[in-house]
């Protein structure tokens, strides 16, 4: 569905060199990305600010012309066949509205029907579905400029889907949203992905989006792909471990050791301890601990993807 081969984008920037002189310098925003995404996949595309996420997305949608390399989406070349491709993809840029500022939301949808030349019946069916899944009815007659950010984003999602795209690109779809709206957006996307008809590529800063939605994770840094695979693979590769947190009746003996684990934290006057599970199962660790000291409460923490990614970004 999507193919990128050695995709590159360079920008020339002028940097100050003395009071009046400017030097030209070339910066590679995307520096040789190779990726293939199959139909129906849901891919999370993450990276620090300026890593090249949005630039990649803009090259995939035909907004930016690549400096070098090959790219194809739905078998089309995005820039030369931009208007043709536009009929087959949906795009949501979190910070750029697709909607008509001064018009009621439903009029924007009607306009998009003309622009995308969607048959009335199909359009109506898709709109009906979005209305019920995204609760649009209460603000369908409100001019877009008066919508809250969460309402607007639900409108943007609908606008991107009314022509039945094969691929949906989402650039920061949850940025700035309140918790409730974030959940509504995620639930909607999860439902959309579950049908398997739509390929979904999303960039985000919020890793909860990824954990909830994407089985595949692509991490990009300095314009290059540094990880491509499942979230579990990321953990395995960067050594993130599950941890066992226990509340104890009394502090641990000083020489206590739990085989296959490392004690990573002792808090609450020694009453709460955290073990990282290095080379043992959770069951074995729990059994070992309960046998040694009286335990009041136990919990098992999944590795935090945020930490992994933070470590990824900071490591040279």
């Amino acid at each position: 569905m999507i193919k990128m081969q050695d995709l590159q984008k360079h920008f020339t920037v002028r940097v100050k060199a003395g009071r009046l002189r400017r030097k030209k310098r070339t910066v590679a925003a995307v520096d040789g990305v190779n990726l293939t995404i199959e139909r129906g996949e849901m891919v999370g595309y993450i990276g620090p600010n300026g890593a090249g996420k949005s630039t990649t997305l803009k090259m995939l949608t035909g907004v930016l012309t690549p400096s070098a390399g090959e790219v194809s989406v739905c078998g089309l070349a995005p820039v030369p066949q931009r208007t043709k491709l536009a009929l087959r993809i949906g795009v949501v840029f979190g910070q750029r509205s697709q909607l008509w500022w001064d018009l009621p939301l439903h009029e924007s949808f009607e306009l998009l029907r003309h622009i995308y030349r969607v048959p009335a019946a199909e359009h109506a069916a898709r709109l009906r579905r979005c209305r019920s899944l995204l609760d649009l009815d209460e603000f369908l007659d409100t001019p877009v400029r008066q919508l809250s950010l969460g309402q607007r984003m639900r409108g943007e999602l609908t606008a991107a889907l009314l022509h039945g795209p094969e691929v949906l690109f989402l650039d920061e779809p949850t940025i700035g949203l309140d918790v409730v709206s974030k959940q509504a957006v995620r639930a909607f996307l999860a439902e959309l992905g579950a049908t398997g008809d739509v390929t979904l590529v999303l960039t985000t800063h919020d890793l909860a989006d990824i954990e909830r939605l994407c089985e595949r994770l692509v991490v990009i840094d300095h314009g290059r792909v540094v990880h491509d695979g499942s979230i579990e693979a990321l953990h395995a590769r960067y050594g993130s471990r599950r941890s066992l947190v226990a509340d104890l009746e009394q502090p641990l003996p000083a020489d206590f050791a739990l085989p296959g684990t490392v004690l990573t934290a002792v808090t609450a006057n020694g009453h709460r301890v955290t073990f990282s599970l290095e080379s043992t199962t959770a069951a074995a660790a729990v059994a070992g601990l309960v046998a040694a000291v009286p335990v009041r409460d136990l919990s098992l923490l999944e590795p935090d993807i945020e930490d992994v990614v933070a470590r990824l970004y900071t490591s040279p």
């Binding site: 907004v63 043709k84 536009a86 993809i89 795009v91 750029r96 509205s97 697709q98 030349r117």
Partner: peptide, 9 residues
Amino acid sequence: LDAVLVRPL
């Protein structure tokens, strides 16, 4: 302009 460029016109 991004929003304009992703439309089929």
